[in-house]
Computed example of a mutant assay.
Amino acid sequence: MKLRKVTAASAAVFALALTATACGGDDGDSGSSSSGSGSDKIKIGIKYDQPGLGLKEPGGSFSGFDVDVATYVAKELGYGPDQIEWVETKSADRENALSRGDVKIITATYSITDERKEKVDFAGPYLLAHQDLLVTSDSDITEATDLNNKKLCSVTGSTSAQNVKKDFAPKAQLSERGGYSECLSALQTGQVDALTTDDSILAGYAAQDQYKGKFKLAGLKLSNENYGIGVKKGDTETVNKVNKALEKMVSDGSWQKAVEENFGPANYKNEQAPKIGQIVK
């Protein structure tokens, strides 16, 4: 009888210890996940407002080339699609989001520059984009110099249009709008003659169902934009893992498939997948 009491008490203590251990483990995982480095979730920074690249759909899902690349990379890091937490990361906050640990990686049309490399590390590049022009399908604009005495649209605060005016078409009339969708509407109605920014961004917008067949890329290479995946400064282990994932994505054909699915409708003539660590100036 006495032995039974001792055994029951021991079992209760053992069960309590197991419960405490499990609770402690959950707290640890939760803390790691909140910084984007846990085993249950990975937080990835993307744009929410760039069709073809990073877009939050009305139903709450996400689409675009950057999303496809990030999903593939996450898989190679051991995370399924349901373990990804997408975090909107605006351009001005990308470095801070990484340094704070808000996200593990950022895949958001993040051009690799010497200035940015002082603050964050980059894997990749995974796409070589160029500044280009988007014009209507029947436009006769084929060179940047053709924009002299024509109206060129870009978003407020962007340097793309100013670069065209400074380097190619000094007589171009600049028209700034609040967003690329506004520039597209102006282009469609003839209020402006062209829209300029990265060709990947232009292709993403032109590939939307409502715009298919209405616009075309001029096919100019006015600049080189090497898109990389941002990683917290000093996290060499993650950089190496992401680079291996990108190499595999290219070799198994998934990279080209993602390009065609996201940019194909705009007849986007993409560059070949860049070699890891090869920055085109």
Rank of each mutant, 00 (worst) to 15 (best):
A206M: 07
K241G: 01
L217G: 02
Q83M: 12
K43F: 04
Y211G: 01
G204K: 07
L220I: 04
A11L: 12
E95N: 06
L134Q: 10
D82N: 14
G78S: 05
D193H: 14
E225K: 11
E237H: 00
K2I: 14
N240G: 03
R94Q: 14
S99H: 09
A203T: 09
G190E: 07
S158Y: 14
L133D: 00
K212C: 05
D140Y: 06
K56C: 03
E271R: 01
A12V: 14
V192F: 13
S223D: 08
S37W: 09
F65V: 01
A22Y: 12
G264A: 03
S34Q: 03
Q191M: 05
S254K: 06
F263H: 00
I229Q: 03
T156H: 13
K244P: 03
K216V: 02
G178W: 08
D26K: 11
T156C: 09
E76N: 05
G277P: 01
V69M: 14
S35M: 07
K221R: 13
V87S: 08
V67E: 08
P265N: 03
G38P: 02
K171D: 15
E85W: 02
Q256F: 00
L55H: 08
R4L: 13
V164P: 10
K75A: 04
S61Q: 06
I106K: 04
S139R: 04
N148M: 13
N149Q: 15
R100C: 10
D235E: 00
G219F: 01
L128I: 09
I112W: 03
K47W: 12
D209N: 13
L184W: 07
Y79G: 04
V242I: 15
F14L: 15
